[in-house]
Lab assay of single mutants.
Amino acid sequence: TFYNFIMGFQNDNTPFGILAEHVSEDKAFPRLEERHQVIRAYVMSNYTDHQLIETTNRAISLYMANL
């Protein structure tokens, strides 16, 4: 899942690491979701930090390219 992918960046001092920290603390994050459209919609609806949203979009693109 995307959640498992992004958790691989925990403790990294990178934008993906920052995203992983936010996702791990977000109890409502769709952890079992595999459809990138649902993940993107969730982030757009629940996150207000523009940098975090952009990082999510980049992470989703990388995740999709590696499926």
Rank of each mutant, 00 (worst) to 15 (best):
A28M: 14
L62T: 05
Q10G: 06
T14H: 06
M44G: 06
L67D: 08
V43Y: 03
M44P: 00
K27T: 11
E25R: 15
Y3W: 07
G8F: 08
V43R: 00
S24L: 13
E33T: 06
H50G: 10
L67P: 08
S61T: 12
I53S: 04
L32M: 13
F29A: 01
D12W: 08
H36P: 15
A20W: 08
A65M: 12
E34T: 15
E21W: 14
Y47T: 04
S24P: 04
D49R: 04
G17C: 04
M7G: 01
I53N: 03
I6D: 00
G8W: 07
R35T: 06
M44I: 11
I60P: 00
Y3T: 01
S24T: 08
E33H: 04
A65P: 04
V23E: 01
L32K: 10
L19R: 01
I6T: 00
N4E: 14
K27D: 10
D12C: 14
G17E: 03
F29M: 04
A59Y: 06
N57H: 12
I39F: 05
P15A: 12
N11F: 12
L52Y: 04
F16T: 01
L67S: 11
I39W: 03
Y3P: 00
N11H: 13
F5M: 01
V38S: 08
D49M: 06
F9C: 04
N13W: 06
K27E: 11
Q10C: 14
I39P: 00
V38Y: 10
L67Q: 13
I53P: 01
K27C: 09
E34W: 15
E25P: 02
Q10P: 04
F2N: 00
Y63D: 00
N57S: 09
R58Y: 09
V38H: 07
R40S: 08
V38G: 04
L62R: 06
L52Q: 02
V23I: 15
L52H: 03
Y47Q: 02
H36N: 06
P30D: 04
T55P: 02
F9H: 05
N57G: 07
N46T: 12
V23P: 06
F16D: 00
